[in-house]
Every structure is written in C-alpha cells, then in structure tokens.
Design a protein around this nucleic acid. Structure first.
Lengths: 219, 219, 219, 219
DNA sequence: TGCTAAACGAGACGGTACGTCAGGTCTTGAT
DNA sequence: ATCAAGACCTGACGTACCGTCTCGTTTAGCA
C-alpha cells in the first residue's frame, strides 16, 4: 500500500509528518481547540497561566495529544501568533517609500498595542531561554518581515528617495527596533503619534545646522 | 523605648525594612553570597539553571534566607545586574554631543554583548510576566539611564548641534531601541560597526536629495 | 458512554476511586513499594525516619505518587500494619472460652512485643492528632478485633462459663486495655507471664473471702 | 567567689541550674506565661498547634527564652500537666479498699475526660517517639500514681478484702489499663458508669458457676 | 551608685520536610 | 494510529518549624 506523506508547514517547529493510509487521522478539531485554548489563556490570564495542563484542560484534550502536534509550548504560541497576526501588517506599496514605511509601522504598532503585543512579547521572552523558540521567532517572523521591508527600502534607494549609501540592516533596526523596545519595556505608549515622530526623526535625521557634517557621515 | 527604623534602599524591590534596635541583623555575607551565586549560575549555565534551590546550595544558604532578603528570583538578578553593570556605561560629557552619544552607545553595546547581555535579556524576559520585575527594571535601569541621556541631548539642542524641535523621548528610543532589539532578537551582531552605522543613520537621517522635505518634517 | 466506577476498598482512608475505562491504571508495583519502604523505615530507623521524602526515595517513587495513593503518612502505615498483622492473632475457637481468650491475648501480646508494637503504638500516637488516623485505626483494627472477641465472650455467657450479667464492652476493655497500656507506657514487660496473671486476675476477680459480696455486684 | 547552686526540681527534664550570685534571674513571669501559652494552645487548637514558635508568640517571649527554661516541647507540656492535674486525683483512704479504688478511678476518668485527657494523650503519643518524654511521663506520673495505688491494694490484701496471692503490678494494670485504653482509642465514653462496671467486673471476676475453678487459678 | 553578668525580645541563620505544581512520558481501553 | 484520561518520575516551588545564633536592652545583686 502506498502512503502519501504531506509536509504541512515545512520549516516550522511544528511536528508535521502527517501520514495518510494507516491509523486514525489527526483531529483538526483538537488542533484548533488547542490553539484557541492557548490563545485565550494568554489573552485572559497572561503567560504564567499558559501551562500545558491548562491548555489540555481548556481544550478538552489530553497532554499527549498536544505533544503529538507540537513539541513545545512556544511552538503553539508561535503558530497561534502567526495565524492571527501575520496578515494584518503588510505594506501598501503604493506611495512614496517614507509614507509606505510610516503606514506599515503604524499597523505594526497597533498590532503590538493589542493582544498580539502580549504574544510577541511572550515569544521574545521565551526565546531568551529556549533556542527553538528563538529559531522559530527569527525564521518565521522577524526575517520574513525584514525581507518585505528590505524590498521597500531598496526601492527607496533605487529611486533616490533614500540616501544611496545606507546599510539596510541598520536602517531596519533603526525603524523597527524602537517599536519592539517600547513594546517590551513599556516605558511609554506605542501609539500613532510615537510612530509619526519616530519616522520623522529617523528619516530626516537629528542634526541641526551647527554640527560638523563631515564627521561620521559615512561614504 | 522608641525605635529607629531606617529604610535602606527605598525604591527597589528588595525587602529593606531593616529595623535597628531589635533582632539579629541581616547577614551581609549571606546577602552577597546569594548575589554571587545567582550571578555565577546565570553566567555559567544560563537562566534555566538559576533556581532558588541551586542558588541556595551554591551560596551555602537556606532558601528561607533568600526569601527573607528578596521576594523574587528576578529581584536578585536585578540587584546583581545593577551592582555590576551600572557603573560601566556612563557618558564622557567631553566632546560634541554626537560623539558622546556614539561612544556611550558603544559602551552599552559592548556590555550587552557580554554577560550583562544575558542578564538584561533575562530581566526583560521576566518582566513580561512579572510586574515587580518590570517595575524594578524600569525604575532602576531604564529611566535612570534615560535621565542621563536626556541631559546630553538637551545640551545638544541648546547648543544647536541637534535640531530644536526634537521629541527627546522619541530620540532616545531611536538611538537605544535598536540596541535592545539586536540584543533580544539576536538576528545580527551587536558590534562597534553596527553602532557607528546606527549613529550615523539616525543622526544624519535616511533621506536623499529626491525626497519631499516639506512632508512630515515636524514643526 | 457510561463509565463503571468501582470502589475497591470502600471504608478505608485509602484513596480508592479507581475508574475503569479511562486513564492509566494505578501501579500496584509502586503501591507495594511504598508500603514496603514505609515499613522498612519504621522497622529499622523508627517513626522519626518515616518521612514522605524518605519513603519516596527508598521506594523509587515520586512524592506525588504517594499522595495520589494516600493522603496521609499515617494511612500508609495503617495499611501496612493491617496487611501484615491482622492475620496473626485470631482465635482458635476450640476450647473453654477462658482458654481461648488467654491464648489469643498471648498472641496479641507477642505481636505487640515485636515490630507490630512499634507500628500500633505509632498509630495510636498519630491518632491523637489526626482524626483520619483515629478513624482508620478504630474501624479497621479495634472494632474488627472486638467483634471477634465479642462472639467468643457471648459463647462463654451462653454456655454459663461466664457470668450472665456482664457488660461485654467493659469486659473487652478489662482484658485488652491492660495490654495496650503496657505496650504504650512500657512500664513493665508484655510477656506470657503477664498475660497469664492478667487473665487469671480478671476472670477470677480480685476479692478475697473477707469482702462484702453484696456490694457492687451488679444485677 | 562562692556560688550557691540550687537544684529546683531535681528529677525532671526541666533545666534547673539556677545560679545565685550573678546575672539577671530567670523571669518567673516568662516561665508561667510559656506554660499557660502552651496549655491554651493545646486546649484550643490541639497538639499540632503547639509549636515552639506559636508558644513564643502567644507568651510574648523569645524562643531562646523557652529553650533556656526547658530543652523539650514535651517537657513544657509535662510540667503544665503535672502542675494542673496531679492534685486532683488522690485517694480518700477512708473506706473499704474496693470503694476507695472505685472513687479514685472515677476521679481519674473524669480528669481524662476533660482537657487533661488531651494533654496526657498528647504526652503518651509524644512518648512513643521521644525517650525523654517517655521517661518523664513514667517517672513523674505513672510510677508516682502507682506507688499510691500499691499502698491501697496492699492494705486490701493485708486486711483480707483482696485475695492474698495477687500480683499487684498486674492488678494495677487491670484497673487502670482500661481507662487509658478508652482515653487513647476513644471507642467508647469514659464515664462513671464505665468505671463502676469495670470495677465490678475486675473485682468480682468474670466467671460464672459452670467453669472449672481449678484451671489457672494461680496459687 | 555604679558594675557586671546573665536573662530578655527580637528575629536572622542553616536545615529538613512539607504538600503542590508543571513538565514531559507512558499506559490503558476506546474510536 | 490517534484519542481522552490519567498515572508516572523529576525537579522546583514557597512555607513552616526546628534549634541555634547574634544583636541591643533590661535587671538584679555585688562592689
């Protein structure tokens, strides 16, 4: 008997080898119930409450089933996060680069101000301890967004809207680092006003007329 | 008989109500042994290894003594971090503001690249769950540094080296946010080269000659 | 789907609600290992050494498993005691009642002189603090023995060997109370000689020829 | 300098070396406060609540002071028990021996039915673990009472009211063992009615007319 | 009257054990 | 083969008392 093996989501931390042709199939009901349970627990009671036992109880599922679908608590949260957040923060690719950037940064900040902020914060936190989470976060979130952004920035450089000698990795850190910073440290609110000032300050620079432009203006 | 109660370190998370005039005084030897044990565990084996039991065992101290001095694991790490890191990253206040900033950002990046990076990352992570850690981190680290930085920036504005209409909170986020971002996400190295590019890009702005300066240049 | 719930050992302090049809069954190996570990600790090192941690370590079992099977340290000891002692002290039901009693009292005294004495003493001690132990001891040891004894005594009354107007509860206390007394207070040895004298004195009475038999001889 | 050392209560477990001639004398207030605190805790909350910390707190005394006066928790309870119970249960020495015994047994049973029962039960329990308590209990309570009782019984034998060939140790166990038994096991009430039946049954014997008097009637 | 030495309260100290919780794995019978 | 249920071992949690100790403070008798 031939068996067809379908890899569902190849590069993630999720266990995926779904084999057709023998045995009872994985319950998609259970799968989604677990994601929802984890998400609800995180939203309502914080990361501390997201235990495997609590997820299992709330989802009406056994712990073994959870481990059959993911090997990590963080993998669940990652999947949940990607599922509900990824689509909401794309670029418009329709105006001047500076404007595209500003609007997309606003969208990200809005997402981070809501429940997604809790989730991504929890993921960054967990990544400090757990290399698999760090890996998932990096590959399935950070780097994917950065590719998008890099394309926009490259367009800006090609069209002359941006300086020609920019290090795009640094530019992306300069634009998005402050957003993550406010989300994680919570010293000040993460609102549209902040984004607008941030975009202005970084795009236009901080220097006034009295500085020595020759110093450190990289070639 | 009146008793004099001296609050030693008023605003921290550390339990501090040390009362003079009654009872055996807290052992400073035990206190420091605990801090060292926690620090060593964190440095050598990572945050996962920093358990109360391990700290107690390594410090030659009972768990009850630890809880008598701090109510949190994170409070210990916070104190340890502040004790060994705080002094290493001040400003020189000696040259042009842009240069002062750049050098201090380098010092911070270097600290974050070493063991202090592990610690501050662990603290930021813990702060996502634990409001007391968030509080300690904010009040005893973040805001204190920002006051220093704010003075430097103000000097730059006063002397005309920096634009007059900057929002200093946003400026600080733009300068330091990227450093925390790289430290926490670890997508790219946190070296002097990054700092130099970052300082350049933010100070001079990203825009080239073809942009519309009137738009979004805030008044 | 209906589930059949079988209560295995209904009246003891042991947690017993073993449900068929779901979940991994309790490990009888672990159960017995715990009983043996507790018994060995008690026999070799005394009651002080019988800690939950020591039992768990010696049985190669986690503390949580112990608490899953019993809610009390004393419940473990009770079960162990009943398991190994109960069968050794029955009646012969073969001769005159006075003789049956004497032989069974000897058997009890011998059991109490050995390790069982340590155990039952520990249980009586624990029962002073812990109502659940008191309950288990009363229902699974004391009252069960007393039913046996009551039948023997009743036979003696029916056959005229014993006085007809005895209060059997008091008789049992008069016969067995002194045995428990010596076991617990240990002021004098608990040997066959004591049992023989005790049986003689209680059966024949203490009074000599010079007393006034009318007084206090209850009707 | 000569010091006069007075041993206050020579044979008990209490620490007694009170030295006159230097230093602050022991506080009798603290001493009694500790005894009262221990007694109240035992009476109101059971033996479990009688911790050194609770005694110290309730007595308004430091733990060190307690340990300066006694080295055992049980020593405190013993002293408290002897202080308040010992005097209430003497013999009258005024009537027939059987009557004297019966009345004194009633007095003991009454004491054991009240708070003293809790205390003596706790002491017997503690004695199972702690040899020093066993020793104190035996020497300062059990054996002292037994001396009194032995004199009464000897009078009965001398006067012919009791059989001449009794083993008085066994007689005392037969009379008092059942009382301790009911106090400790609590299977049946410890009231005057029980005492009267007990005295009757033991004094007059259990046997009826149909038994073989030659058997086991010791010479 | 002032000295001295022990007792005092307070409470920190190193320990041991407690009972609970979560993690990740394994074992049932049923689907 | 997967499912729900739930037992299993491991290891850490935070707490409670233990008996000892170190403080600064009485407090009595001797000098």
């Amino acid at each position: 008997m031939d068996r067809i093996c379908i890899v569902i989501q190849a590069k993630t931390t999720r266990k995926v080898v779904q084999t057709l042709g023998a045995g009872r199939p994985r319950s998609t009901v259970a799968h989604q119930a677990i994601l929802n349970a984890a998400g609800e627990l995180l939203d309502k009671h914080g990361f501390r409450a997201v235990t495997m036992e609590a997820i299992a109880a709330r989802a009406g599922v056994s712990k073994a089933t959870i481990y059959r679908h993911w090997h990590n608590k963080a993998a669940i949260i990652t999947e949940r996060f990607l599922q509900q957040t990824a689509s909401t923060i794309g670029f418009l690719h329709s105006g001047p680069v500076s404007e595209d950037l500003r609007l997309q940064m606003r969208a990200l900040a809005r997402a981070f101000s809501g429940k997604s902020g809790r989730v991504i914060a929890a993921l960054v936190a967990e990544a400090q301890d757990d290399p698999t989470v760090a890996d998932a976060l990096l590959n399935h979130w950070i780097l994917i967004r950065r590719e998008d952004t890099r394309r926009v920035l490259q367009r800006g450089m090609d069209q002359g809207e941006l300086r020609a000698n920019l290090d795009l990795n640094v530019v992306m850190d300069a634009l998005y680092g402050p957003i993550y910073y406010r989300m994680l440290v919570r010293h000040l609110p993460l609102n549209d006003d902040f984004i607008d000032h941030l975009a202005d300050h970084v795009l236009n620079g901080l220097l006034g007329g009295a500085h020595h432009p020759s110093i450190h203006l990289m070639d």
